[in-house]
């Protein structure tokens, strides 16, 4: 059972690794790359805490083998904001709107929001709720999260950077 050599492009950084094929992407991100912003909540693809973007699409990184991410572009929560003090508009909206309590679901929620807004810069409330239904939260009742997404959608459209 040989290790497999893979290249992961994470947040613009290139990592060359030899990994056991049975290791999931979230395990490699957290254990090998020390990118612990991606959380483990269930390991069965049900809670969304481990959401990352692969080539722009949201996936549950606990349900993906690391080898399957070879040569793909991976975006994790650590790559969303650029500077030390700078927050991505989505993160800023989550902070301002009170969308964060315990924070454990937050990285996954933020990335699911990014995926939604990349696809649909002007979502309805129903579309937001559908888009976030793969991310469980036990603290907020989702209400403030939905408000944050609505607020940031407006802001990003106004700023013309809905990309």
């Amino acid at each position: 059972m040989d290790k497999v050599c893979i290249t992961l492009n994470v947040n613009g950084d290139r990592y060359e690794l030899a990994v056991d094929p049975w290791r999931t992407l979230v395990e490699v991100l957290r254990d090998d790359l020390n990118l612990t912003g991606t959380k483990i909540g269930c390991q069965t693809g049900d809670c969304g805490a481990c959401t990352v973007l692969i080539d722009g699409k949201s996936v549950a990184s606990c349900m993906m083998l690391a080898v399957a991410a070879d040569n793909k572009n991976i975006a994790t929560i650590e790559g969303l904001s650029t500077g030390q003090d700078e927050l991505h508009p989505i993160q800023e909206a989550f902070v301002e709107q009170g969308a964060i309590q315990c924070g454990y679901c937050t990285p996954g929620m933020v990335l699911s929001t990014k995926y939604l807004l990349d696809q649909n810069p002007d979502p309805t409330e129903t579309e937001i709720r559908q888009a976030l239904s793969g991310n469980l939260c036990r603290c907020t009742g989702y209400h403030r999260i939905v408000k944050a997404v609505e607020a940031v959608a407006v802001k990003m459209r106004a700023d013309g950077k809905g990309e």
Binding site: E78, Q91, V95, G98, I100, T106
Partner: peptide, 22 residues
Amino acid sequence: SIPRIDAPIKATGKARYTGDMK
């Protein structure tokens, strides 16, 4: 309605939970 002290660190994935520590 002051935003939480810990919201930015949680929003950026930098907040360390027990399982994040080695």
